[in-house]
């Protein structure tokens, strides 16, 4: 069967693989940050997880930050704050 040569219309990703954050050996005394994506109920999940992380796993402090709208990234100010202060950061996506 005759063959035709075509140009691949897809593209490779430009982003280089990144090093993930560190692995923790436990949460006792650790500072946990939350980026609340502002979707319905995520604020409640943040509250409940925060309570469990402190009371059950010994986290020393929780910092909660809520996005203005879900479809924009958290501000640089928030990211800088959480990076400087937290050992672990939790965020979410989904309705």
């Amino acid at each position: 069967m005759p063959r035709t040569l075509i140009v691949d219309p897809t593209a490779p990703c430009l982003n280089q693989p990144q090093q993930l954050g560190r692995t923790l050996d436990g949460l006792t005394g650790k500072v946990v940050g939350f980026i609340d994506d502002s979707k319905p109920n995520f604020n409640h999940l943040v509250d409940d997880l925060a309570e469990l992380l402190v009371n059950r796993y010994g986290a020393s402090k929780v910092i909660k930050r809520r996005k203005r709208v879900s479809s924009h990234p958290a501000s640089d100010t928030v990211i800088t704050e959480l990076v400087e202060q937290c050992d672990m950061v939790i965020t979410g996506s989904g309705d």
């Binding site: 940050g33 990076v83 950061v89």
Partner: peptide, 20 residues
Amino acid sequence: MAKRGPAAVAICSTAFAALG
């Protein structure tokens, strides 16, 4: 976020896990 140091976890609902 993850590249800057802290451990990171994302929470996704099942319908959005593949997207995540």
